[in-house]
């Protein structure tokens, strides 16, 4: 069982993470590099001279972007481990785990890990004003935990009490409120920040759907393999 979870998570996480990393490099990284020009002060808007919205950006950096790819694969392997742990428990309770049903798991994972915390702490470009990082991290983990529990309750709950509890878990972190900065001091134009958040969510959804699909597929495949070696 350990092998089945680990092998499935490694394969699914590495595949989904690689695709996520490439999508991020193509769609998100240029927006981030653009924002960094404002963060460092190389560009400044609302000055005397109008600033072009299409400055020359640094190209592909093997060290920096290579590390980004590796870390994306690691993060999605971490997600994969959590997803497959829960999938194995759900299968025990009679759920069918396959590549197809994995897509739903992926969407639920995206809601829990990206959309729920991002609803009040949107994916931020470098150089925006934000509250203390430790406080935001505590809020982030608590929100992800609540949202993940809510997703499980919505999927496997059988009555309105349970679904009501799920709604409370989804709402509570945002009603309580995320840590916010004292003042707005970000030098980055809103156009760049909005595009960054939208792109980060889009890539996140695509990557999570793939992760769920791959996780379900490899889980099923490793199960067939385990059965075959047991009966042989």
């Amino acid at each position: 069982m350990y092998t089945r979870i680990l092998v499935s998570a490694l394969f699914a996480g590495a595949c989904a993470g690689l695709i996520a990393g490439i999508l991020q490099l193509y769609f998100v990284q240029p927006v981030l590099l653009h924002a960094e020009l404002y963060e460092t002060g190389a560009l400044s808007h609302f000055g005397a001279v109008p600033i072009s919205a299409h400055p020359e950006l640094p190209g592909f950096d093997l060290m920096r972007d290579g590390l980004s790819l590796i870390f994306t694969m690691l993060i999605y392997t971490g997600y994969g481990l959590i997803l497959l742990a829960l999938m194995s428990l759900a299968e025990d309770r009679g759920a069918v785990i396959s590549g197809r049903s994995g897509i739903l798991w992926g969407i639920a994972g995206f809601v829990a890990f990206h959309l729920a915390p991002g609803f009040s702490l949107p994916p931020e470009v470098p150089g925006v004003a934000a509250a203390d990082v430790t406080v935001r991290q505590i809020w982030w983990f608590a929100t992800v935990g609540c949202a993940a529990a809510a997703m499980w309750l919505i999927a496997f709950g059988a009555n309105w009490m349970v679904w009501g509890l799920a709604a409370i878990l989804l709402l509570a972190p945002h009603v309580i409120g995320a840590p916010e900065p004292e003042v707005f001091a970000g030098p980055v134009p809103t156009e760049i920040a909005a595009l960054f958040a939208a792109r980060a969510f889009g890539v996140g959804l695509a990557a999570w759907v793939l992760l769920g699909c791959f996780a379900g597929y490899f889980w099923q495949r490793e199960g067939v393999y385990a059965d075959a070696t047991q009966s042989a």
Binding site: Q24, I75, E124, R136, Q137, W140
Partner: peptide, 29 residues
């Protein structure tokens, strides 16, 4: 543990290496 290490630990080396990914994934950076 993998997510905490790659996405959240603030040690300088880890933060710098994972900087772009942390932003792009929506982690508090």
């Amino acid at each position: 543990a993998v997510i905490a290490l790659t996405g959240h630990v603030q040690a300088a080396a880890l933060h710098d290496a994972a900087h772009d990914v942390r932003h792009a994934t929506g982690f508090p950076c």
